[in-house]
């Protein structure tokens, strides 16, 4: 079947098998390998992209279902001016280690702030429940999202020692 979509601002028209998942279409046909596959049960969120402005797990959508839609992947986030504020916050707060969850996490986090511009820590944690990370313990991911929302952060470490 022929599927056309706008991906990161550019038109893309491809023949796809009806059973092809959007994530495989993005990775194989479009060659955008920033979007990852981390599971086979729609649990991990590594495949998160924006579909018509909303975060979706691209392993839960068939490529044909995305016909006529607008897709943004991690590759479409930075601009000529530089990193997206969420990308910058992830770097500054050390919100990534191995980086495998990162593209999906950033896409989910951007969408979270679209919905709740100034979230509480609990709202950030709830909002990212569907995105798993094995490396960071989520601590610095949460900090990155809070920072990107313009909120002040606590000191990362308290000084030890008696009387501290």
């Amino acid at each position: 079947m022929q599927v056309s979509m706008t991906v990161n601002g550019g038109a893309q028209v491809h023949e796809v098998e009806p059973r092809t998942l959007l994530v495989h279409h993005i990775r194989e046909a479009l060659g955008l390998t920033g979007t990852n596959v981390g599971c086979d049960t729609s649990s991990c969120g590594a495949c998160t992209v924006h579909l018509d402005g909303e975060a979706v797990k691209s392993c839960t959508v068939l490529a044909v279902q995305a016909d006529g839609s607008e897709i943004t992947t991690i590759e479409g986030m930075a601009t000529a001016e530089g990193l997206h504020p969420m990308q910058r916050a992830f770097q500054e707060q050390h919100g990534l280690q191995c980086g495998f969850c990162t593209p999906g996490m950033v896409m989910a986090a951007v969408s979270l702030l679209d919905e709740i511009p100034t979230p509480t820590e609990a709202q950030v944690r709830e909002g990212l429940e569907g995105n798993l990370c094995r490396c960071t313990g989520y601590h610095n991911i949460v900090r990155a999202v809070l920072a990107a929302s313009g909120q002040a952060l606590d000191d990362p470490v308290s000084v030890g020692g008696a009387g501290a």
Binding site: G34, N36, I74, F100, T102
Partner: peptide, 16 residues
């Protein structure tokens, strides 16, 4: 980080 944050890492299945 910038690579991981903009185009993603190059894991084995990403190697072209």
């Amino acid at each position: 980080d910038p690579k991981f944050l903009t185009v993603g890492g190059t894991y084995v299945d990403d190697v072209r």
